[in-house]
Simulated scan of single mutants.
Amino acid sequence: MKAQFLGAALLALALAGCGGESDFTIGGSITNLKNAGLVLANGDDTLSVPVGATSYSFPKTVAYGDNYSVVITKQPDHMTCTPTVTSGAAGQFETISVPITCAQNTYAVNVTVTGLTAEGLQLVNGSSGTATVTVAAPTASFTSIPVGTAYGITIYNQPTGQTCTIANGAGVMGDADRSDAVVTCVKNS
């Protein structure tokens, strides 16, 4: 009798160690969540994640063998978040980890150049590097500027024999590419 009881207890422990019939929590780490609005879902179980959270956990658990699918139903303001894994079946571990990484959205400032007849024009956006503008392709683009970041495009080098000025070259990046910056070049007298 004692051996049967011990055998049953060992079997129960072995099943519990393998996941057995327990419930499973779905959650994970969150990296770089700086804006409000992130909403996650696993089926009909939804979760609003607060700004600055570094982890999350769904309120409902899933049973052994049940499928899960973590999706982002609403992205945070001005950001894009991406789960590392999204779906699977509850199994070996009691906690199912679905890490999520967030990044600020980025856009470009596109510059149109008029009146350019000589080589040598260079534009710069703060300390992010320069863009050389040629007569053949009188445009420039400064890409990957995060939403909410100030930008300031200026003339770094004037073209030979010309003077250029810029309009609408400074601002704060919004939720779309900007195309209103214009450089106007005139011949030196």
Rank of each mutant, 00 (worst) to 15 (best):
Y151R: 10
D77G: 03
Q122M: 15
S144W: 00
V183Q: 01
T101V: 13
Y107S: 06
V111R: 01
Q162E: 15
P138H: 07
G27C: 06
C18F: 04
Y68V: 04
N110H: 13
A14C: 14
T82F: 00
Y107H: 11
M173D: 13
N67S: 15
V49S: 00
H78S: 15
S48V: 14
K2C: 01
G17D: 10
L13R: 05
G17R: 08
S128Y: 09
E119N: 12
Q162Y: 08
M1S: 12
I153D: 12
N35C: 02
C81M: 08
N105S: 09
A36R: 05
V182P: 07
Q158S: 11
I153M: 09
S141R: 12
A131H: 11
G120S: 09
T117Q: 11
G19Q: 09
A89F: 06
L116M: 03
N157E: 15
V51C: 03
G28F: 14
A36W: 02
T132Q: 10
S87D: 14
T73Q: 03
A108V: 02
T149P: 00
A3H: 11
G169Y: 06
F24D: 08
V49D: 00
I166T: 05
T134I: 04
G169S: 02
G20L: 07
P159G: 13
T134G: 03
K2L: 10
V109P: 02
V70M: 02
G152P: 06
I30Y: 08
T134S: 15
V98Q: 06
D45F: 02
V70H: 01
P99S: 04
T54Q: 13
S128V: 06
G52E: 04
Y64L: 02
N168L: 07
G91A: 03
G65N: 07
A53T: 06
G19R: 06
V109I: 11
A90C: 04
I30S: 01
I166R: 02
T154H: 04
G65C: 02
Q122V: 13
G20K: 09
P76T: 09
F58Y: 08
C81K: 09
C81W: 07
T95R: 13
A90S: 04
N110L: 09
S128A: 12
A9W: 10
A16K: 03
D44I: 03
A167G: 10
A16F: 13
D44F: 03
A103S: 12
L11M: 10
V39H: 02
T95V: 12
A103D: 12
V111S: 05
T154N: 13
G17I: 00
A16V: 13
C185E: 09
V147Y: 14
M79I: 02
S22G: 15
L123T: 06
N157F: 00
